[in-house]
């Protein structure tokens, strides 16, 4: 448990003093720092908020954006919603899988990339669209998949 987490709890509780409302904001904030939510982290969160561990784990397990396994530096969410699929999202995903040598849901062994399916990202005007660490990129035609990997950047 990191000491400044307590500080965060204080801050969040000011906004959301009731119920367990502080839970999701705290998980978001800690995940942003830690990259993912390990069982130990979840137990810490339970202690910090004085909640049962079951509650914290159960809640964390419900939401797809809470990562229960370590993820890569770049988390690529490819939208596979119908509108994107109509514009080649499957091919985009396929190219990425081939290039990275992993399947969707996995992380490259070097820890650089995680590839995930996203349900409709509410950006169908940009289809096929993807998010890299939750930042939109689109349209990304399948053949331009490398843009999502930031290769050539820097």
């Amino acid at each position: 448990m990191k000491p400044h987490w307590r500080q965060w709890v204080e801050e969040i509780r000011q906004q959301f003093p009731q119920g367990n409302s502080a839970l999701l904001p705290l998980l978001h904030r800690i995940q942003a720092e830690e990259g993912w939510l390990s069982p130990e982290t979840l137990a810490d969160v339970a202690t910090l908020l004085n909640l049962p561990v079951t509650t914290v784990e159960s809640v964390a397990s419900f939401y797809s954006l809470f990562y229960k396994r370590p993820v890569g530096e770049r988390v690529v969410h490819v939208c596979v919603g119908l509108s994107c699929a109509l514009k080649g999202a499957d091919a985009l995903m396929h190219r990425l899988e081939e290039h990275l040598g992993i399947r969707q849901g996995q992380t490259t062994p070097d820890g650089k990339y995680s590839l995930m399916e996203a349900e409709c990202l509410a950006a169908c005007d940009l289809a096929p669209v993807a998010q890299v660490n939750l930042r939109y990129m689109g349209p990304v035609p399948p053949e331009e998949y490398q843009r999502l990997l930031g290769e050539g950047e820097k």
Binding site: P52, T54, T55, E57, S58, S61, F62, Y63
Partner: peptide, 9 residues
Amino acid sequence: EPQLMLKGR
């Protein structure tokens, strides 16, 4: 004593 939970979705 919440010792069991629903896990996943």
